[in-house]
Design a protein around this nucleic acid. Structure first.
Lengths: 118, 118
DNA sequence: CAGGATCCATGACGATACTG
DNA sequence: CAGTATCGTCATGGATCCTG
């Protein structure tokens, strides 16, 4: 890997994933396939419409997700992962596994420092 | 993987890596081993002392890097990756590879839209 | 239904000066 | 040498209200 700051591409991948809701949006679409705006919204407790729209647009801009508008009233818009977007899945899985381990690591650390206190 | 927002651990891993200089700091330490504050600073063009200190402290807090102070004048402080921190390397590699591919993908996309313009 | 438009709080990041 | 201390800026995220 080229770690020269100018040539390091880690930030590029990171940039796609950064955003409070992006990982969970991607996982939701990866696991449950095509979904409408409202469905996504219901599965992401706490997200506002503004944020959902914004993050979806950013992911679409990078060709990670596909947005299909059905010209009808009331409006219907479907979102899905692109083939290209699926290439992110291994990274998301790796991060989830690492995160799970890290949670345990922190708990253990806490217990140890509690023990040495008494 | 558990994608319930409350149980998804992707954010935890992401949280460690987020920070304008963290990936590059980690790669620098992974590839070149133990280094002093000044060395790191020289290899990260543009970083300010304040930011380097802050990001190093955050990584240390998560046990990703080790900070060793030599009590002497002038001061000498060495930083290195912990064994635990090394477990992040596969993720960094995966993100770098993905980022490299993504850069090409975007260039191609630009060329295509330029072609259809004329 | 799926958003767009506004306004606002927070915190990440940076420039600069100073110090044990 | 390896930081700390201040101050300022800007982007991210959020609350709320409006609309084709």
């Amino acid at each position: 890997m080229n770690i020269e700051p100018e040539l390091c591409k880690v930030e590029d991948a990171l940039g796609i994933l950064i955003g409070k809701w992006k990982p969970i949006i991607l996982l939701q679409l990866l696991k449950h396939g095509t979904q409408r705006f409202g469905e996504l919204s219901r599965h992401l407790p706490g997200i506002t419409q503004r944020m959902l729209t914004k993050q979806l647009r950013e992911l679409e801009e990078e060709d990670i997700i596909r947005r299909v508008v059905y010209p009808q009233v009331p409006p219907k818009v479907e979102y899905s992962i692109t083939e290209y977007g699926k290439s992110l899945e291994p990274i998301l899985n790796a991060m989830h596994e690492w995160g799970t381990m890290h949670t345990l690591h922190k708990q253990e650390k806490l217990r140890n420092s509690a023990d040495s206190q008494e």
